[in-house]
């Protein structure tokens, strides 16, 4: 090193310069692709959302904010927002709660619990489209396993439950064909698929909570399990929770596979499961209404980015609530 230092500043600055050149060469492909694949499309969508462009047309007209106005006034899009937010607001908290609950149970069982960890993680790995089709069969009104199992309860004391009694007297729900059930079934499958992922994240968080903290809390008079959870576990899992909420929200916003598998046309009975990704697909790609599709894309990006920024802000403040 001394030798290098001895021959003065000239070669060093040359070295710095050549290092800068290699650095730019090394980052160039990544930078170019980032611009072309991530940034340019956002600008394209932004511009096209103010036009009535269609693929195959030579040109387009500027229509101002007409596309956005449509999004905010037409009932179809009102249904789209309702379906999307119903899905997000249902799936995120429930899959978080189930993930946390499962993680705490599995964690307290020690090595025996690993088998449950494996099982609960299976849906995360499986191709969602294939599993959606499997669920569709399970929920088939006449030959599906769900309604068959429910029918077995007929004539037994289970009939005290109004839902079962009603189903036995009349018929059990059509599930996917019923506008009152459709979106909830999709939510259920979203939860089924995602809570194992949250569980694994929480398990990683739980192993990092120090045992001494529990002892200390007990010393301070936190006798019940609930008190210990409230005072030690939940705050210690704060960062994990922030992450779980954000990633679940982003995933929930992007729900598509199940909807398209169940209702390739139209997004569910009475458009009750017409989520944003499906709307982008249907309007922008199938119907070639690029303008309105781009407007939905822009709104979608805004939602997702705001969510992620909130998460980063919370993490940077190292919030433990």
């Amino acid at each position: 090193m001394a030798v290098l230092d001895a021959n003065a500043s000239e070669p060093v600055s040359k070295g710095v310069q050549s290092q800068a050149r290699t650095a730019w060469t090394l980052t160039a492909p990544a930078l170019a692709l980032m611009f072309l694949i991530l940034l340019v499309p956002i600008c394209v969508a932004g511009v096209l959302s103010f036009t009535n462009y269609s693929l195959g047309n030579a040109g387009f007209d500027w229509v101002g904010t007409e596309n956005y106005e449509r999004l905010l006034t037409r009932t179809t899009y009102a249904k789209m927002f309702v379906a999307t937010f119903t899905y997000v607001v249902t799936v995120v908290p429930i899959s978080l709660g189930l993930g946390l609950g499962a993680a705490m149970l599995v964690h307290s069982l020690g090595r025996v619990g690993d088998i449950y960890k494996t099982i609960y993680f299976l849906p995360v790995m499986a191709t969602l489209l294939a599993m959606a089709i499997a669920w569709e069969f399970m929920l088939h009104p006449t030959i599906g396993m769900v309604n068959r199992t429910l029918e077995m309860a007929c004539g037994s004391w289970f009939e005290v439950i109004p839902f079962i009694a009603h189903g036995c007297a009349d018929r059990f729900p059509l599930w996917l064909g019923d506008k009152d059930y459709a979106i909830w079934v999709v939510c259920f499958i979203g939860i089924w698929q995602g809570f194992g992922f949250n569980m694994v994240l929480y398990l990683a968080g739980l192993t990092s909570v120090h045992r001494e903290l529990y002892h200390a809390a007990e010393m301070d008079g936190a006798r019940s399990a609930w008190e210990r959870f409230r005072l030690v576990t939940w705050p210690a899992l704060g960062p994990t929770t922030v992450f779980v909420v954000t990633i679940s929200c982003i995933r929930a916003f992007q729900v598509f596979d199940t909807i398209e598998a169940f209702w390739p046309q139209g997004g569910g009975p009475n458009k009750s499961a017409y989520v944003m990704m499906f709307a982008i697909f249907e309007k922008g790609i199938q119907q070639n209404l690029i303008g309105i599709g781009s407007a939905i894309t822009m709104l979608f990006l805004v939602f997702v980015m705001v969510l992620t920024l909130i998460q980063r802000w919370l993490v940077e403040r190292k919030v433990h609530y």
Partner: peptide, 19 residues
């Protein structure tokens, strides 16, 4: 890079498809 982490590729599927 940090900014681009915010962008889910599925969300910009439509403009990518057009390009």
């Amino acid at each position: 890079v940090l900014f681009c982490l915010l962008i889910p590729v599925h969300a910009i599927a439509l403009p990518l498809y057009i390009m």
